[in-house]
Nucleic acid binder design. Sequence first.
DNA 1: GATTTTCTGTACAGTGTGTTCAATAACGTC
DNA 2: GACGTTATTGAACACACTGTACAGAAAATC
Lengths: 210, 210
Amino acid sequence: MNTIPRKIDRRIERTQQLLAQALMDLIIERGYDAISIQDIADRANVSRTTFYLHYKDKDELLFASMSQIYDQLVGSHEGFMPIDIAPADFETVECDKGDFQHVADYADFYRAMISKQGSIVFIMNVMSYLAEIMKPGLQARLAGREPKIPLDLIAAFCAGAEVGVMKWWLENDMPYTAEEMSRMQFFLSMFGLKWALGREEKSVQEKQQS
Amino acid sequence: MNTIPRKIDRRIERTQQLLAQALMDLIIERGYDAISIQDIADRANVSRTTFYLHYKDKDELLFASMSQIYDQLVGSHEGFMPIDIAPADFETVECDKGDFQHVADYADFYRAMISKQGSIVFIMNVMSYLAEIMKPGLQARLAGREPKIPLDLIAAFCAGAEVGVMKWWLENDMPYTAEEMSRMQFFLSMFGLKWALGREEKSVQEKQQS
DNA sequence: GATTTTCTGTACAGTGTGTTCAATAACGTC
DNA sequence: GACGTTATTGAACACACTGTACAGAAAATC
């Protein structure tokens, strides 16, 4: 807690921080794709040469800068969902806002990143990442049983669905709260279309016989 | 079927065809991002100037060339899934191979497009597109009832999930057939995690009481 | 065969990349 | 506070790609 013996140069930390901040600001302003390295350097008040002293290219800076955001994303997965839940609990159950609160916090950033000016590397990384951090939770719910479908595939399914839902949410100006989104997402993935489309309400099997 | 009165210049058709083919070949070889317009022109044996005579940029050529592939994607959605189906039908029911056969046919192309060298514009377009062409099917299943969750959100969910699953499939060297994938995807979205993780098999509610 | 249209090669200005280098400024340490 | 070390700087460089312009060649249509 007291004076930590500084090993890394103050200048390095300062430069990297400035570059990271500049990148984030510019992403929100113009979109990732439209940013040149000169732009980043200018915004950070740093020589372009200095940029190359620290990072190979834009992607490298992006992912270095993202570690903080990523860590938060993991964090928002810690408080997972109620383990034993019934379809009827929709409306009543309290859900963790989870990822959606995180996306809401960085809405401008994420909106820019999924736009035409965004980055496919980033999106695909997020998807892989989500799938990965989802697996322990799935494994826990499985509790030793054999899944009907490979767990990796289920994780990929859920991760993709989450990205799809977040894309929809951001593109439609977030018409629901993070908590509502989280609940809908949770119940939808848990009970599927059959539930969401209300096909099990009262087992109405006869319908316009031809 | 006989001589259609030609209105468009033969050269135009030829050039555009060559450019489209060149683009597709190069995407598979190097990935979309790594291709320059000079590359496309060279491969098509066409002057770079000619390229600009037909298209504004790479994306425009991509989407012009994609119309055929897109049409097939719609087509693969025509024969949709059995409407009344029970979880028990997994293993037995015959599923339309649907989108997955289409992706298998163009596996190299799609694999390149979701890679680091791919295109975010393309992926996001595919996702929006899938969501859009899914809606009629969902509406039909709804049959007048009120959905528990907005239909657009459900469509976004399914579209994202499908992209996620396809990404997994392609990145893992397609360890299942298109038909198997289609069935798993269908049942997973239909009955959700609760089914996939086998939590309703015999309602085992007691488990390691602390 | 005459006319219209497309294609071509070259050229140009502009922008961005990635690297080198010697000079300068800031740092940590003693 | 002086020291040696290290990061930063600006200028310069070669290279690649973009987008546009233009006049002549080639190929289509009629």
